[in-house]
Structure formats: C-alpha cells, structure tokens
Design a binder for these strands. Structure first.
Lengths: 339, 339
DNA sequence: CTGTTAGCGCGTTCAC
DNA sequence: GTGAACGCGCTAACAG
C-alpha cells in the first residue's frame, strides 16, 4: 500500500544505502538527491518510523504519562513539553491514567511497548513501583510535581512547603487567627508538603493548629466543595480558608457561592494554581500560582540532557538532579484585613 | 538489553512460533505454557510492540489529534475516548497542535509515521487538506466537533445551529431585544453555525440583526474579554450577551467583573460549554452545555466500527456517517426577566 | 500442537 | 559516493 524505500530504489535505480543516507542527511551526489526527492514526491513516500525504530533501537519519542487530562495544570505542562522536545527532534506520546494506579502501570507498559526513549511523568502517588519496568529498561525518567519517598530520582518540583507557608502567612499578617486548610490526604506528596507549610506558618505566629480546621481528603472538586461547606457551617467557623489545590479551590468557591457567603466580608479565601480563575471570580481571588511553563520547560530540558548523557557515556554516574522552582502569589481582593 | 522472544526460546527450548502463539493467545500445551510463563517472568520479557507493528502492519493504536490541550472540552473528550478504545484492545497516542495549522499537519505525519490504525481528530479549520496523507494511507478517520466544507467525512457533532438558537431564544423569551453575540470568525465552522442559530432566533422574533452587536474574532479568552468590554462600553449597550464558546465565556466574565457590571441586573449573560464554571460564577451562569462524554464515546465507537469494517471488507462502500448530538441548557440566574 | 522459513521496512556495516 | 548482505524482534504461512 504505502511506498517503501524499495519502491524509490526501483524508481531511481539507486541502492537502498544511498536512499537511506539521503533520508538521514548523509552525503549524496546532487543529481541523485534530485532523483530521490522526485521519487519521494511522486510516490508519497514517508519514512516508516516503526521500521526505523526497530532498526535503530531508538524511536526519537518521549512518553509523557500524567495523572489526568482534565486538569489545567496538565494541559499547560504537556503543551510546553511537546514544544521543547519537538524543537530537538523528539516526538511525544501522551497518556493519562485518570488518577487510577492500575491504569498508571498499564499505560507505562504501553509507552515502553512503543519503545519510547524516555519517560516524563506526573505520578499519582509517592510509590515508584509502577516505574520498575522503566528502570529495568534503563531509560531516563523525569518526574514532575511530585517526588517519591522510596527512591531518589530526577525531578522538577515547586517548593510546596514554602508556597503554602507564604499563603498562610498572608492570612496571618492580615490578622486572621482561625485559618483553615483544605488539602489532600497523607498519601499525597504535595498535600503533605503543603500541610507542612501551613503548620510552619501557624507555628511562627505561635498559633496552635486546630484539627477541626484541617480538612483532608481527595484532590477533587467534591472534596473542596464538601469541606468548605462543613467549615462554613461550623459554629466557631474560621475567618479564612486556604484551598491548597486547584480542584479544591473550584469546589470551595462553588460552596461559598451556594451558601451565599460573601467574601471577603464573611470569609477570606486564598486558592491555588489557576491564575485565570482568580479573575473569573468576583472579587478577584488571591492565588498561589505555579510557574507551569517553567516547570514544563525545565523538565523537557532535563530529559534532553539525560538523553544526551545516555548516548555518550556507557555506564557512568547517573547523578540525580532535583530542581525546585519558586511559586508566586497573585494578589486578589478575597482577603479581609482584620487589623 | 531487554529480553527478546529468542531469549525465551533459548531458555525453554521451544520454537519461536510456539512462543509467538502463546503471546497471541493460540493453543499451546499446558506444560509449555508454564515454561514460557516462567521464562517471561524471569527475564522480565515484554513484547516489543515496534517489532510486532512492523510484522503485522497494524499497531493496535489510534492517533488522537486535537486543537489544544489547554481546553476543557479536549480533556474530557480524550479521557473518554481512551477508555473506550482501551476496553477494545486499542491504545491511543494523543497530540495537540496548539491551534497551529502547520503543526496540525506535522503532528498528523508523526502519527502516521507511528503507523496508527486510525485517526480521531478535532480539526482547527474547515480545510481537510492536512488529512490527505491519512486518506492516501486509506486508514479510518473520524472527526469531532467540526465538519469540513470541502469533503464529506465521518464525524460526531453537536447541532450548533440549534444550540445557539435555543440560547438566544431564552434571552428573547425573557424580553431582551438588544442581544449581542461574541463568536469566532467566519473561517471557523462552529462559529458560523452558532452565528446562524443566533440569527435564526432573531428572525423568529422579527428583530433586525445589528452588526454592532456581533463580535467576531478568535476563539480566545482575550477576544471574549475585549469584546465584552466594548459591548459594555457602548452608548446603546445590549441588555444581554451570548458568549458562544468556552474561552469567550471566560474572557467575558473577567471583563464584566473588571468593569463591576452587575449581572443579571445590568447585563444578562449566557455562556457555553463548561458546566462547572456556571457555579463558580456568582450568581450561577446560564450555559449551553455539550454532551462531552457522549461525543467522545460515540466517536470512539464509530472508529471501532470502521476498524472492523476495514478488516472484513476489502474495498467496499465506505458509507459516511455523520452523527449529530443534542446540546442542553443549564439554567442559571444570570438572565434578567424584562417583561 | 509445534518447528522452519520467510519476510515486515529500515539502518548499518563492510567492500567496491 | 555507492552497493550487497545482514540484523532489528516479531508474525505468518507452511510443513511436520
């Protein structure tokens, strides 16, 4: 059906080697170049990457495995990674596992089956077990957003502790003393870190942390919604809430709206992640925002470096790189000044 | 490095054919099955899908090419497509082209290079030219969200004309007479359709359409933002605005907030696409919502059918299927009753 | 049920 | 600079 390298050999009378060289940028006589180009044009020839991958044992493609497509964080990350890699001749295969750990393992095998040259992933848990097949194949792996507790690996993170601490500090500086946090549960890396930041900030101000003000759960809109509702319905309700993740922030806002609680007058709010959201909400929401593009670009560059090293050195020092980026805070009008 | 089928042959003493049969679910003696399973386990063997793809000329993977990852619409669609296809033994390779037509063509070639068995795509324009290489390869192609003006193809759409007409009818029923629309430009399929619906509704009510109330542009947050600003600053400003796409809706809301225009008191609003957004905004936004899951599932099923047909028949009637789904309207509180 | 033998489409030695 | 031969890892006929 599709034309192969042999068809263009028959058409030009040249040999397979010559044509292969042409395709891979080697030295070929001008007249031959022309003939080959013409044949390629006429036959609609396109390189069969599958065959090429088999022969070279490299596919020039990177697998990107993320926790969910339905996530603003992910979209920006992927787009930027793709861009960088493409500029360096690499394609990308993107998979999501919808927050499911079994699927995460399965999709990884899918990517390895496609013989990707490397893996960039946003893991859903702190357990690196599912990556074992990748380690065995000895291909570079770069983590985004989350590190593992059981293994040191190359990764690009933000300083979650500091990000959360700063967010809570803003609330404390403005005089809030009953500050709640809605976050993920202990199994979740970023949740642990952000909770730590929350507690550090309270400590600085010598405020005892009140368990009733810490709402742990899944990183979902629903958890944000229900938790915010519970907080707002407390007798001694907090004066401020830190919504420590995007989905949670969304759910929290929905709850506040539904209960017709005015902010910042009746409750002060600070959210996480999506800058645009802060302006969709009225009044504008204070937000901790992650440098998404930078995270993506950094991860892609890190992957390219590792790919380079793997090509040169045979079996030298891996040298784990852990890159930590700073977050910033978007100043909205959703926090009341109590002083 | 990685174990191959030969390694497990050497280890079991069986032949390649037997092992291949085992891998593909053929009949193999129980004792041999055991031996093979054991060897696979010990050697960490995994099928090399690249080699298999070369041999079978089928990769059991579908390419999904979308206009942008940074789009709620896309996330839901992809996840659902993946799910359906996976259940039927197909993997998916997802690419986005970030709204860039050159990239769209390039990514298609990437997918074809990977020898995907079919393509599901959300095209960015009404021009099917970039799909030519796929037609030549004679693999099934399914369109989502947009049809082409220059070629009849299998596709899954919503009835955009009707969706827009219904949205505007809601406004008209409530007594609005100066109704504006913010939409995409003429080159855009859905924009054309939605504008048509807008005009049909006006016609029904015998209202002359005022060019000043039709804001054409790109399907971006920025266009929504600027257009809404212009509309609000008009001397004879509209009493209601139909924001005919998700990004436009986002931008429109930001503008309304920034200018401190109260809705529905000072302006009535109805938006498009993201159901959740409607509750993040206060008061809740009226919304036209598309059956995203259904669109995705339908497209995936359509692809599976075509794959089946392609396998059975040799070169029979293609029979183009155009599936049109209905939208629904989420009732918010963002429209004032003028009667 | 199992083994042998050809390819699948391309890259890569080597000689020429 | 060019050509022939071999191998990448697996499947698909055939024989046995």
């Amino acid at each position: 059906m599709a034309a192969t390298i042999r068809d263009i050999r028959d058409r030009t009378g040249l040999s397979l080697a010559t044509i292969s060289k042409y395709l891979n940028g080697g030295n070929v006589l001008p007249e031959n170049r022309k003939a080959i180009a013409k044949a390629i044009e006429e036959l609609h020839y396109e390189v069969n990457e599958v065959a090429r991958g088999l022969a070279t044992r490299r596919t020039k493609t990177i697998g990107v495995l993320i926790h969910s497509f339905e996530n603003v964080f992910a979209g920006t990350i992927i787009s930027n990674i793709e861009n960088i890699l493409r500029q360096h001749g690499y394609g990308t295969i993107v998979c999501d596992c919808q927050g499911d750990r079994d699927l995460e393992a399965e999709e990884l095998l899918f990517l390895l089956g496609k013989r990707v040259d490397g893996i960039i992933t946003i893991p859903i848990s702190g357990d690196s077990a599912y990556l074992k097949p990748a380690f065995e194949r000895n291909i570079p792996v770069v983590l985004i957003d989350r590190a593992f507790s059981d293994r040191e690996m190359d990764c690009v993170l933000v300083d979650n502790v500091s990000a959360a601490r700063q967010a809570v500090q803003v609330l404390l500086e403005k005089g809030h003393r009953r500050v709640a946090i809605v976050c993920g549960d202990e199994s979740e890396f970023t949740a642990r870190e952000r909770l730590k930041g929350y507690e550090q900030a309270l400590e600085e101000y010598q405020i005892a942390s009140d368990p009733a003000l810490i709402k742990r759960g899944k990183l979902t809109v629903e958890h944000g919604y229900l938790s915010m509702k519970e907080l707002l319905e407390m007798e001694d309700r907090p004066t401020a809430v830190f919504m420590s993740n995007y989905e949670i922030t969304l759910g929290g806002i929905v709850a506040v709206n539904e209960l017709s609680v005015a902010f910042p007058d009746e409750i002060s709010l600070i959210g996480f992640d999506n800058f645009l959201l802060s302006k969709v909400v009225n009044p504008p929401l204070w937000m901790v925002s992650q440098p998404m593009e930078k995270i993506a670009i950094t991860a892609a560059r890190l992957m390219l470096e590792k790919l380079d090293e793997a090509e040169k050195e045979d079996g030298a020092k891996p040298e784990v790189r852990k890159i930590i980026l700073e977050t910033s805070i978007f100043r909205g009008e959703s926090i009341q000044h109590l002083l």
